[in-house]
Simulated assay, not measured.
Amino acid sequence: MSEASSPVKLERRGHVGVLVLDRPDRRNALSRDALFAIGRLGRELVADPEIRAIVITGAGDKAFCAGADLKERQGMSTDDVRVQVGLYRSELGVLDRSPKPVIAALNGVAFGGGLELALICDLRVAAPHAELSLPETTLGIIPGAGGTQRLPRVVGEARAKEMILLGRRLDAQQALAWGLVNRVSPEGVSVLDDTLTWIEPIANGAPIAQAAALKAIEDSFEVPLELGLELERTRYDETLRSEDRLEALRAFAEKRKPVYQGK
């Protein structure tokens, strides 16, 4: 598949790699080709030493991602669907396992698999008109790309059950109040541009420290406090051995901004 025909576009904005779901005619739905493209481009960005953060967004201003491509699903057997659900784990899992922070810029609706894609990300920024929902139980299924597992970890069990069992749809401000998104962009401002400005501390930050902090949080999320503290100590030690830490000390002494090299 040529880059021009790919359902996902890759842009580089300085130290940030931007993945754009580019199927506006299908509300940026997740086809099989789109899943493979996310996996391929995600691996490329994770391996790129110049990239310090990954942003994923959708083309247009109506949909971040409306979920699975139901038109494509109509021609699938039950076993085909099982294979497709497996691709959510293998291909979107590239972003889930990324040592670099991943941020969703929700430029419109994020329904079903689209919200599950956003939940894989470390941070979420929503346009004021964005809407978020996991409507699967109203369609006779359940969220199958991690929604039943990740949503409770973000908003809590009770609110996750409310969203999933009632198929409840949240607007951007409700999602912010629930902690489902971290930020709502101002009216009239591109959510992608706002996101890139907001994450400048990551893009210009110390990549070794960023990765170590993410790993420490993720490793200790469901372990006893004592083990979590030991895991944190191990990750902290990684930063002590970095050139970036010495650069931070020099910059502080010289009263300037540090220039991190990820070394």
Rank of each mutant, 00 (worst) to 15 (best):
M1L: 15
S2R: 15
S2K: 14
K9C: 08
G17Q: 00
G17F: 00
V18T: 03
V20K: 01
L21V: 02
R23T: 13
R23V: 05
R23Y: 04
S31D: 11
D33V: 05
L35Q: 08
L35Y: 05
I38M: 05
G39F: 01
R43P: 00
L45W: 02
P49F: 09
E50H: 11
R52W: 07
I56T: 00
G58S: 05
G60V: 02
D61W: 09
D61Q: 13
K62I: 10
K62H: 11
A63V: 03
F64I: 01
A66M: 14
A66Y: 05
A66N: 10
G67I: 07
L70K: 13
E72A: 13
R73D: 02
Q74S: 12
G75T: 04
S77P: 01
T78Q: 13
D80Y: 03
R82N: 08
Q84W: 12
G86I: 03
Y88W: 14
Y88R: 11
R89V: 08
E91V: 04
E91M: 14
E91F: 05
L92E: 11
L92G: 04
V94E: 03
R97M: 11
S98V: 11
K100W: 08
K100R: 15
V102R: 04
A104S: 12
A105V: 06
L106D: 00
N107L: 03
N107A: 05
G108E: 03
V109I: 15
G113T: 02
R124L: 07
V125Y: 02
A126I: 02
H129P: 01
L134K: 03
L134W: 04
T137H: 02
T138C: 07
G144S: 15
A145R: 05
A145F: 07
G147E: 08
Q149I: 11
P152H: 13
R159S: 06
K161P: 01
I164Y: 00
R168H: 11
L170F: 13
Q174L: 09
Q174T: 10
W178C: 10
S185H: 03
E187V: 03
E187A: 14
D194A: 04
T195G: 03
L196W: 01
W198H: 08
W198N: 02
I199P: 02
I199L: 15
E200C: 01
A206T: 00
A206M: 12
I208R: 02
L214S: 06
K215E: 10
A216C: 07
A216L: 06
L227V: 10
R233W: 04
R233P: 01
D237K: 14
D237W: 08
R241N: 09
R241S: 09
E243P: 02
E247V: 12
L249P: 06
R250L: 13
R256A: 08
K257L: 14
V259T: 12
K263G: 14
K263I: 09
